[in-house]
Design a binder for these strands. Structure first.
Length: 778
RNA sequence: GGGCCCAUGGUCUAGCCCGGUUAGGACAUCUGCUUGACGUGCAGGGGAUCUCCGGUUCGAAUCCGGAUGGGCCCACCA
């Protein structure tokens, strides 16, 4: 081989960190606000806790590919790196690490502890992100467009508060003391969107009640016997013949000896249990509706600590589960328990703590959302979804939203609700937006006075739901805080890239907030990725032993291999990706192949102009053109399976074994047509692969073609003149012919370079010269 | 209970929208090979009644209907 420009014999993942440093030094991904043709990408800031999982690594790699694709389509890409540091997981982690409960420690102190926890984690995430080769605009710069950000930054929080104050001004926020989902473990109200339903075993208990007027015995089935004390009615279906005579009578609650009305109501299903149902405050959401509808008096049985209140009598202080056990024991002892059936119950649980929820009334702030659902349905139609079917997930949630969004929480490490209350008349004092307020530790703005004349205020102690922060991420990254004009020009954000699991939270809330604030869609494109799961098709979990972590994979195989794997496994937009080390490793082979192909080609000079092309050259250019077409359309869809597998197929199944072998002899002779075509194919392949495998492509590019990074290049233009379907067909025959000759020599036990006597079919006569030299045909 | 998606060799998948190819590839497996770059390579082989049943059609993996089996999302069954 003549001197190759690439001296190393194979791709070495150790080049990756060098290249990353060089990119940073040259600032090739930095963001310039003055640029035209902006493409902005809003990504889920990864949660700061712990190391990155495979899902995060693959997910972010692919978002990075989108950023690189848009750059190569000529856009100036806003792609900031963010880290999420708000919310419950940090608090829970801090509580565990320090073996304390948040409420046992002064607020100030607890927040300091959270910060300490966070600082331990922060670097780890960023380091993995860098190793993956993410082309984020900046890693250290803060507080400007393109800068890295954290969601607990006072700047971010002041934006959250400013948007809250704006919505307050527009009358979209109100306070209400209504029964709501409450997580006793997190000790806070949560929104419907934060509920996860889990199938949990429970017992359906049939209890013996008596009818006060007749002394008749009736059976009532319940899964929540500990709620007996709050029972205010017993219902039967109006069509249920068995119970018509009970109308207007009363049932006596066992243990508590209290009489409650028996009534007909359609919500009681005759076929379930005994057909009689007790209504308690609050066993489930139906109870809430019934209490409201029937005007029943609410009895609070569970306190904010998740313990039974005085109203349950001797079970006070127990948790609901303990109380259930105790009360069942008592009921059984007194003969009230008739039977128990085991059943699975789709139980609402907290998505953070995974614990069953209770329904407890608590005064909370609400953001109106139900009246915006129809508008959001229209907004969603203006957005291009990748893949299009993913829009179904959003539509399904829009159909399900039934009540306004409770936005206040009773936690510490989060953005504060920026309000004070007059000590005299209780009226809220609403500060001007623009500053980060912490009402629990500071007074209202100097000189504040209530309408009633008082200047004595009490600070609000509640904080916001984390989604109040997250749902304005696109507003934050587009720099509304720092440059209102620029923001106005570049909103909506070009793209939201996120996982399918947070459609009803992050995506939905962002669209809601953007619509409320700006009457516009938040994004032009929404890209929804699926999950990374274990090789066995199940969710990765330690107990199943199917966990693969990104850092060890990066150590062993490098970022490009990992990135290529995420493209090659399947379409991330259409299905979950199964992950096994074996399959990741296999992708490294393609990098070796690509490297060697490039190294070989680099040993031939690249003519400035294509000379008179021969038929074989025209054939591979036609193949290249067809690859360009399919790959570019896949890239436009942000679906990397098509371009990656297309390039793989082109290089490994057509270009290297057939075309290169065909023109090798010509190339050695210095034929300009062959040399030019080899380089043309290689340049195109490198560019098409650059977004997916940014390291190896740049290393080759810099080594062979340019002093400047491939990541500053544009995608090759399509060239209609190279299309030739007839030639493509002939190419297939050509490849078949090659296989035939190879097989013939193999069957004859001859080496591949031996002389052979075969006749070249008429339709391949145009390739005759190349074929003769390739196969040594005499 | 409602909705959405899916079903292709041992495994993961492409093709299906716009019916007609020996159903393509990767991984695994088997055999052989220094071929002027690559043994992390090259060449070749074996392996699929395209879940099932109907229908449309000259012709169905592809279109239509149904069944079965998965997955996901939503929903107040006590």
């Amino acid at each position: 081989m003549p001197d190759p420009k690439l001296s190393e014999k194979r791709w070495d993942k150790a080049f990756e960190s060098e290249l990353f440093k060089q990119w940073q030094r040259d600032g090739i991904y930095s963001f310039d606000k003055r640029a035209q043709d902006i493409f902005s990408i809003d990504t889920p800031p990864p949660y700061a806790s712990g190391t990155w999982h495979m899902g995060g690594a693959a997910h972010y790699s692919q978002i990075d590919m989108i950023a690189r694709v848009m750059r190569m389509f000529g856009k100036h890409v806003l792609f900031p790196f963010g880290v999420d540091r708000n919310g419950l997981p940090i608090e829970v982690r801090t509580e565990q690490d320090n073996n304390i409960s948040m409420h046992d420690v002064p607020r100030e102190e607890f927040i300091a502890m959270c910060k300490k926890t966070l600082d331990r984690y922060k670097m780890e995430i960023a380091e993995t992100a860098k190793r993956l080769g993410l082309s984020c605009n900046a890693w250290d710069v803060k507080h400007e467009v393109g800068g890295a950000y954290t969601t607990d930054d006072p700047e971010y929080r002041r934006l959250t508060q400013a948007t809250f104050l704006e919505l307050w001004k527009r009358g979209l926020i109100y306070e209400d003391n209504r029964p709501n989902n409450y997580c006793p473990v997190c000790r806070t109200t949560i929104a419907d969107a934060e509920i996860e339903y889990t199938e949990l075993p429970t017992k359906l208990n049939s209890l013996r009640f008596r009818v006060k007027e007749s002394g008749e015995e009736i059976i009532i089935a319940t899964t929540r016997p500990e709620m007996l004390a709050s029972c205010q009615a017993v219902l039967f279906n109006p069509s249920d013949e068995r119970y018509q005579h009970l109308e207007g009578k009363h049932a006596i609650i066992p243990l508590y000896d209290r009489a409650v009305p028996l009534m007909a109501h359609p919500s009681a299903k005759p076929e379930y249990g005994s057909g009689l149902v007790m209504v308690c405050s609050y066993g489930d959401y139906t109870d809430v509706l019934l209490f409201r509808e029937l005007g029943l008096e609410e009895v609070i049985l569970i306190n904010p600590e998740g313990r039974m209140t005085e109203r349950v009598g001797k079970y006070a202080g127990l948790t609901p589960v303990e109380a259930r056990k105790a009360i069942l024991h008592n009921l059984d002892g007194l003969g009230f328990l008739v039977k128990q059936e085991q059943l699975m119950h789709n139980t609402p649980t907290c998505w953070r703590s995974k614990n069953p929820l209770e329904i407890i009334p608590m005064p909370e702030y609400y953001l109106k959302q139900t009246e915006f659902i129809d508008d959001l349905r229209e907004v969603a139609k203006e957005i291009r979804f990748h893949a299009p079917v993913s829009k179904n997930m959003l539509d399904a949630w829009l159909d399900a939203v039934s009540m306004d969004w409770p936005i206040s929480r009773r936690r510490y490490y989060a953005t504060e609700v920026p309000l004070w209350y007059c000590e005299e008349c209780g009226k809220p004092l609403v500060p001007k937006p623009g500053k980060y307020y912490q009402p629990w530790r500071e007074g209202p703005p100097a000189g504040s006075k209530c309408e009633c004349g008082s200047s004595s205020f009490r600070g609000e102690e509640r904080v916001f739901d984390t989604w109040m922060d997250s749902s304005i991420s696109e507003v934050y990254i587009l720099g509304k805080l720092w440059d209102e004009d620029w923001f106005g020009k570049h909103f909506p954000c070009s793209l939201r890239a996120q996982g399918k699991d947070i459609v009803r939270t992050w995506l939905y809330y962002t669209l809601l907030r953007a619509y409320q604030l700006f009457k516009k869609r938040a994004f032009d494109h929404v890209w929804i990725s699926h999950h990374i799961i274990g090789a066995d098709g199940r969710k990765m979990s330690k107990s199943l032993g199917n966990v693969v972590m990104p850092n060890p994979m990066l150590d062993k195989y490098g970022a490009d291999t990992l990135r290529l794997w995420s493209c090659m496994e399947a379409s991330f937009l259409k299905s979950d990706l199964r992950c096994s080390e074996e399959r990741i490793a296999g992708n490294g082979k393609f990098l070796t192949k690509l490297w060697n192909t490039a190294r070989f080609i680099s040993s031939f000079p690249e003519p400035a102009e294509p000379a008179e092309l021969q038929e074989a050259d025209k054939w591979i250019l036609a193949e290249l053109e067809s690859l360009k077409g399919s790959a570019l359309s896949g890239l436009e869809e942000f679906d990397f399976f098509v371009p990656a597998s297309g390039v793989w197929d082109f290089v490994w199944n057509k270009f290297a074994p057939h075309y290169i072998e065909l023109v090798k002899k010509r190339a050695y002779d210095g034929d300009a047509a062959a040399c030019w075509t080899l380089h043309e194919c290689m340049r195109t392949v490198l560019k098409l692969m650059a977004p997916m495998t940014p390291y190896i492509t740049d290393k080759i590019w810099l080594g062979v073609y340019s002093g400047k990074s491939i990541h500053l290049e544009r995608f090759p233009e399509k060239d209609e003149s190279r299309k030739d379907d007839g030639l493509l067909k002939r190419g297939v025959a050509l490849m078949d012919f090659n296989s035939c000759v190879w097989k013939q020599k193999k069957d004859a036990g001859q080496p591949l370079n031996s002389e052979v006597s075969v006749s070249i079919p008429a339709n391949l006569s145009v390739f005759a010269d190349d074929l003769k030299r390739m196969h040594n045909i005499t």
